[in-house]
Write a protein that binds this DNA or RNA. Structure first.
Lengths: 252, 252
DNA sequence: AGTGTTTATCGTCAGGAAGACGACTATGAT
DNA sequence: ATCATAGTCGTCTTCCTGACGATAAACACT
């Protein structure tokens, strides 16, 4: 079993991030504009090299912080800081995915509450939140009718995988709360589900489901009218991470 | 954004395999004995380096074939050859997981029907199927009372993740049929679920569930008495890959 | 003040699925 | 013939969901 590094060509290992949030009733992903070849000028997922002494999760957390200022919410962390949820998604290693050299990318998925504005940091020219619907419209047209260039590299595939992971995971976990501020109402949580799944949910049945699942929501005692209408109770995410029975995604 | 390979230390990229099967009512994993340092003489998961021109899935399929003779059942393949199910599991990249150099391992999960006997191939001294219960008993004792040495590297963690993936995935997919021969009975399929979950299921409710889910099972017309008792209908796996509603794992 | 609009929350009802379990059937073993 | 073993069909109760009526509490008008 040969282990001499010189026997094998060097692989570069990177992390790429699928950072999702809900903005204006739509599921959006963070994209950065590429400043150099290849795919210069095209939008791509944020990412970068894994450093020699870094774990993969550390590298992803560092990139997330550099791009958004968010702190990664380590699953082993105790309470709800204002950190985002971060988990490994999948690894992409097609020999031709980067024309320059052999790059294996460990993609990570981050879920964040709505942020003020993307802060262009590091080496990226600019960054923006884009609706995933537009980013994944293959060779299609955006909301304003302009043609949309596909994402660089295999990032469209990575994004699609990340979106699918998020869509399925909020079914059976309490992860949808990661898209919400620390305190939120049942209606706000419902709008998260509606945006991520792109469906309409019955407010009454949704309310019954989430308030009836023990450990999912903890009332804080406060109320708010920030959505208009009758004041709504405020909740925090409860300790339960698994929803059983799950929240059912309506049939298409 | 630096891309000069010399800027970054070389990473070695490997694939490790969690190959699961059901033998004698127990979920078993394929392990190979290490012939060299580190962890010489200890059991480990099969695996090896990704070659320069290979995709990750190809590398995993090649390793699987070398170790077991199984053909990987590509999800895009049409019908049920005698191949095993193979999917990417997760990637492990702790800087210290291999004391010799920086190795990033892309673990894959394979599910196979019961095989005659492990065929020691390639560079492994020997191979065997071991019940996952024993392999994961941390510093515990095997069925025969002998102390069990933990798996090499972080392979216990990888195995645990693979087992958990298999356990949860047979809930909502038809993947349990990957543990069965091409034709099987309802009872044999039930014993797969019972072995993977380590629970007892009601034969009548199980029968109602699997035969009542459209597209899950296709009767072949034949019957068998290989399990004793009344002859049972033989089925093939149907086209349905997603079970909705899922098969429910009993509460603990 | 009154009316309409919006959002939140509680209740009711029918249908479907699952767990518990009784009953019957078709083999081989003794 | 009897028994043990497995498979298959039903029944009953309970829980969950989807559909939807009704009420409550805020705000924006007039």
């Amino acid at each position: 079993m040969p282990y001499d590094p010189s026997d094998y060509p060097p692989f570069a290992v990177t992390v790429d991030l699928v950072v999702l949030t809900v903005r204006r009733h739509a599921l959006c992903a963070l994209t950065v504009r590429r400043g150099e070849q290849p795919f210069q000028g095209r939008w791509a997922l944020p990412g970068g090299f894994v450093r020699p002494d870094e774990d993969l999760a550390q590298a992803a957390a560092r990139e997330l912080s550099e791009e958004t200022g968010l702190t990664a919410h380590d699953p082993s962390a105790p309470a709800q800081d204002n950190g985002a949820h971060l988990e490994q998604l999948a690894t992409y290693g097609d020999p031709k995915r980067d024309p320059r050299m052999r790059v294996v990318s460990v993609a990570h998925l981050a879920l964040a509450p709505d942020l003020p504005a993307p802060r262009p940091g590091g080496d990226a020219n600019s960054a923006r939140w884009a609706p995933v619907e537009e980013l994944l419209a293959q060779g299609g047209y955006g909301r304003d009718g302009e043609p949309v260039a596909p994402l660089a590299f295999d990032h469209a595939q990575i994004l699609a995988d990340g979106v699918e992971r998020a869509r399925s995971k909020i079914e059976y976990s309490s992860l949808a709360t990661a898209f919400c501020p620390p305190e939120f109402t049942v209606g706000e949580l419902r709008r998260v589900y509606e945006a991520v799944w792109a469906v309409a949910l019955d407010p009454r049945n949704f309310h019954r489901k989430v308030t009836g699942t023990p450990g999912f929501l903890v009332p804080t005692g406060g109320t708010t009218t920030r959505q208009g209408g009758r004041p709504a109770q405020l909740f925090r995410a409860g300790g339960a991470t698994l929803l059983n029975p799950p929240m059912l995604r309506p049939e298409v």
